[in-house]
Amino acid sequence: MNGIQRRGKEALARRVAQDIPDGAIVNLGIGQPTRVADHFGAGRDVILHSENGLLGMGPAPAAGAEDFDLINAGKQPVTLRPGGAYFHHADSFAMMRGGHLDICVLGAFQVSATGDLANWSTGEPGAIPAVGGAMDLAIGARETWVMMDLLTRDGRSKLVAQCSYPLTGIACVRRVYTDLATFECTPQGLRLVDAAEGLDREALQRLVGLPIA
């Protein structure tokens, strides 16, 4: 893919952060999406929710200042911002299911054109299944966004007509941010939001193998 300005991990995190409005209440899942928090800048007040009972989560503490009673969903030490709150697990997931979170950002194995999400199991025989809070987040937040590479290592699209991996939720993904383009999932299929420099709609359609409006 010569001449294409592929977004690196930090650029992708910056791209997602760009679309999160001031005042939003956001859950950043675990792993790659947590990088989004580094790119809100000083002008925006975004309240981060963590499934294990934190609202107003702050950045990692300085080395040596870790408090092992204050961790995030990925079990890494974090801090709490002034104005933050602690609550128990049933309240934390009520916040999700009850539609009180504006946005959650998750990773994915596959997303279908209409927004079905597969991100918890590859369904491999012998694998030990683990789901955590992924299913609750996927269907609970008012908008679920996915952040992932568009293609697998062997070049197949992770945006698909129908997920072949076990589902996390049905028609729950609104936007998909990838290294090569940003998409919206709609009942009618994929809509292009933006594409990396050097990549046009036709080239993207060839990569994805699906119509893109």
Partner: peptide, 24 residues
């Protein structure tokens, strides 16, 4: 756990985290 599970020595009921909390 992984070893017990793979040897069929332990049963697993997998529950989404929020459903686990709400069932409790």
């Amino acid at each position: 756990f992984d070893d017990l599970y793979r040897r069929g020595r332990i049963e697993l009921e997998l529950v989404p985290q929020g459903t686990l909390a709400e069932r409790l």
